[in-house]
Design a protein around this nucleic acid. Structure first.
Length: 309
DNA sequence: CGCGTTTGACCAGCGC
DNA sequence: GCGCTGGTCAAACGCG
């Protein structure tokens, strides 16, 4: 059975247009479930205890606008294989249905590198510390085609954890860092204290220099698909809960778009402003922090990158 | 002392 | 088969 690790990326619209060479590196998210997976992989705290679905109105035009370009990308770069999609659907169902068994968690040995599932996240320098997991650097290598080296991290929370993270600076936009997550955590999300204990030092070291040009777009996060989301603590795939929204005082400025996908849930996409950035109010992040025990860095305006476009 | 980064060496996948 | 490249290992070292 095919087990291709197609990647998907959510990135600012203008980024795609200006950095087409990077499209060769990444695929794109093609379903809302994959977006959920990406979110869950990187920000699991957003999903804890929120595993019921909600009805949200979304127009067909909006759905087409949000998702159509992604399918095109997949067709172009990876080819569209119904069997592959079926496998991916099954992976997601396994993930959604119940806590996975140990056998499901164990990565396949000798798996081809390009078949490994991975999640690609693009963040600004400020966003590098927004990861709740504790990572330990175990290698760094210069990458062909990039003037910046790639750093390799493994999860330091648990010795047996196979989760990996790669960090590289975009060669076309030095303010953007490309995070690639592979494998999955075999443990629950660390507590805030544990997480800080693991990242305090590395954060202070600032191994990756912050670009003087960064900061224009706040937290720019780019998500990708096909993550190995089999965290044993995960209850189900879900979207950010209405309770979160209410708790966060979401206003018209922080509208979420939602998309039904074959009765298997819906995605919630932050609104895109005129600058092609998702904008969240401070109240929103305060709410998330309260609900998930997760501290976002202080900033007057939080902006998440939006989906491909 | 524990935990982190750095860095050169080594290994394996992949294309030719 | 060979060479290139990416990913990992492990020793050395730094820091609190």
């Amino acid at each position: 059975m095919a087990d291709w690790g197609l990647q998907a990326v959510i990135r600012p619209k203008e980024y795609d247009h200006q950095h087409l060479d990077h499209n060769d590196l990444f695929g794109s998210i093609d379903t809302k479930k994959e977006y959920d997976q990406a979110l869950l992989f990187c920000y699991p705290h957003l999903f804890d205890n929120h595993h019921h679905h909600h009805d949200h109105v979304v127009t067909d035009e909006l759905v087409d606008q949000l998702y159509k370009p992604v399918y095109q990308t997949i067709d172009h770069h990876h080819g569209f294989d119904p069997e592959i999609q079926q496998d991916q659907e099954q992976d997601i169902k396994n993930f959604c249905g119940s806590a996975p068994k140990t056998s499901q968690l164990a990565p396949k040995l000798k798996k081809r590198k390009n078949q490994q599932k991975r999640v690609v996240v693009q963040v600004t320098a400020d966003g590098l510390s927004s990861d709740p997991w504790a990572w330990r650097k175990y290698g760094q290598k210069p990458i062909k085609g990039s003037i910046y080296p790639r750093s390799y991290y493994r999860c330091s929370t648990s010795k047996g954890c196979m989760a990996r993270r790669q960090v590289e600076q975009s060669c076309t936009d030095s303010s953007i860092y490309i995070l690639t997550y592979t494998a999955d955590h075999n443990h629950s999300q660390p507590t805030r204290r544990n997480s800080l204990a693991g990242i305090n030092r590395s954060n202070r070291v600032k191994a990756i220099p912050k670009s003087p040009t960064s900061g224009d777009c706040g937290k720019t996060v780019t998500m990708s698909k096909d993550s190995p989301f089999h965290s044993p603590t995960t209850l189900s795939v879900s979207s950010i809960d209405d309770e979160v929204l209410q708790h966060s005082n979401i206003t018209h400025e922080t509208t979420f778009y939602n998309k039904f996908d074959n009765n298997e849930g819906l995605a919630m996409m932050p609104a895109i402003n005129d600058d092609d950035c998702m904008v969240f109010s401070d109240d929103f992040f305060d709410g998330l922090e309260d609900l998930g025990g997760y501290k976002m860095e202080s900033s007057s305006t939080k902006q998440f990158p939006h989906v491909f476009c």
